[in-house]
Nucleic acid binder design. Structure first.
Length: 415
RNA sequence: GCCGGGAUAGGGUAGCUUGGUUAUCCUGGGGGACUGUGGAUCCCCCGACUCGGGUUCAAAUCUCGGUCCCGGCCCCA
């Protein structure tokens, strides 16, 4: 027996229906916000991802050489492909460009709770604008999506990587050490960050100031402590969010995000029910296009971990009920099968989801089957009914039945 | 890459400590009792010891290794 590869999943019909249902909700929210959907290839030139995230990610990439000796990688995320697409084909489109996408990504990592080797991301990118309103729009979209799915317990944290980056530059941290220090600060691992900074000649005073800064966490009021332009920027952002009815988030100036190209506002959403892998959304403003050969264009984007958010919803007890089908057509006896087939085809043409027995079952078993596939109605096709060009229509939830003319059937069911 | 716990019909499980008939029970699936009415009952049938090696007269059970799953560390774009 062949097993499914490590870290992958099969989605059976019930699960798939649930996934499509929520996927649809996310799409509809994105469209409501004026975003349009795009899709990029499942695999790309490996270089694309290396340029974005550095050579170290090669270890965690599904990368291979194709038959034409090209270095190919399954995409580990969707921002880089989207920005590549923008640079290749969309750079002259009117700004802002508002895009969203949904698709699977692949990472060669150790699977654990909420982490798979094949997983699904839903994301959005807002390209060509660099205002607080842009960031507010992105955050509002993310929040609206999470709300639309019905997730109750989540925590949004908003920070500003630009301020921290500048502070580190000001105290003399060279660019090549920046990533390492930021990584430590992200984890609030001050005992690890300290010695590194000390070696780089940072004074204890400056260090304390930076640590205090990254520990600036709280409501909007902590923004009073952020000086200068970034402070103004964040205050404007907060006011826009408030205008859109979004509050209850934390300002956390220690939110870092792993990558170099984030330039300003960064944000994360986590769902505490999830345990170790609890981050369900991450994003921020960045400039990436110039890396792929385009002009420098400011963007804000985020990605939602679709699998994780579904997992969180499950843990919160949000249940999805299968839709089932509208009608199951039951032939009473073998000689009415042609009529059952005819009626089934007619209903299907009218756009009604409809199924009928193809196993030669007797009526009782066919009724039972109709009930297990969660059919709203059963159309009973028998000789007596056919004499008056009718069928018996049974409402499966109430058990009520009535004689309905075949010509009236579609109308009857749609009502 | 590291640490720990697991894997028995499609799903959920008992058996494993202390090796020994035909591997338990529930659910599911197919058929029948019911020849024109589902979610009830009864009967029949289908279906499993993760894979490979070792110990043994004998392995689901003990042992070693692989694979996969679960939880955590590292990482997390």
């Amino acid at each position: 027996m062949i097993q499914r590869p490590r870290g992958t999943r099969d989605f059976l019909p019930d699960e798939m229906e649930r996934r499509r249902h929520y996927e649809g909700k996310l799409r509809s929210v994105a469209k409501r916000f004026g975003f349009r959907e795009t899709a990029t290839p499942i695999f790309e030139d490996s270089e694309l991802f290396i340029m974005r995230s550095g050579p170290n990610i090669l270890d965690e990439l599904y990368a291979f050489k194709d038959k034409g000796d090209r270095e190919i990688a399954l995409r580990p995320e969707l921002t880089a492909p989207t920005i590549r697409m923008f640079v290749n084909n969309m750079s002259n489109e009117p700004k802002p460009i508002k895009l969203f996408y949904f698709g699977q990504c692949f990472r060669y990592e150790r699977p654990q709770s909420g982490r798979y080797r094949e997983f699904f991301q839903f994301g959005a990118e807002l390209i060509g604008s660099a205002t607080p309103d842009t960031d507010a729009e992105a955050i509002a979209l993310a929040v609206s999506m999470i709300e639309e799915l019905g997730l109750k317990e989540y925590r949004l944290r908003i920070g500003h990587i630009g301020v921290l980056r500048q502070k580190l530059l000001d105290v003399g941290i060279p660019a090549e050490n920046m990533a390492e220090i930021l990584q430590k600060l992200d984890k609030k691992a001050y005992d690890e960050a300290g010695p590194i900074m000390e070696v780089l000649g940072v004074s204890q005073n400056s260090m304390d100031e930076i640590f205090e800064f990254t520990d600036t966490i709280g409501g909007v009021e902590v923004l009073d402590r952020v000086p200068g332009e970034p402070g103004d920027y964040l205050r404007t952002l907060a006011s826009r969010l408030s205008a859109m009815g979004i509050d209850g988030y934390d300002i956390d100036l220690g939110v870092v995000r792993g990558l170099d190209y984030y330039t300003g506002v960064v944000f994360e959403v986590e769902a505490p029910v999830l345990g170790a892998e609890k981050q369900i959304c991450g994003g921020g403003s960045y400039t990436l296009s110039q890396l792929f050969g385009g002009e420098e264009v400011f963007s804000t984007g985020f990605a939602i971990g679709f699998d994780r958010i579904l997992l969180a919803m499950e843990k919160e007890g949000i249940e999805y009920e299968s839709e089932g089908i509208d009608v199951y057509v039951v032939p009473v006896s073998d000689d009415t099968r042609p009529d059952a087939a005819r009626i089934t085809a007619m209903l299907r043409k009218a756009g009604i989801s409809c199924d009928t027995d193809i196993m030669g079952r007797k009526m009782g078993k066919a009724m039972k089957y109709a009930s297990t596939v969660n059919s709203k109605f059963v159309a009973i096709v028998g000789k007596t009914e056919l004499e008056s060009e009718s069928v018996t229509l049974r409402d499966m939830s109430s058990g009520e039945q009535k004689l309905v003319l075949i010509s009236e059937l579609v109308k009857e069911i749609q009502f």
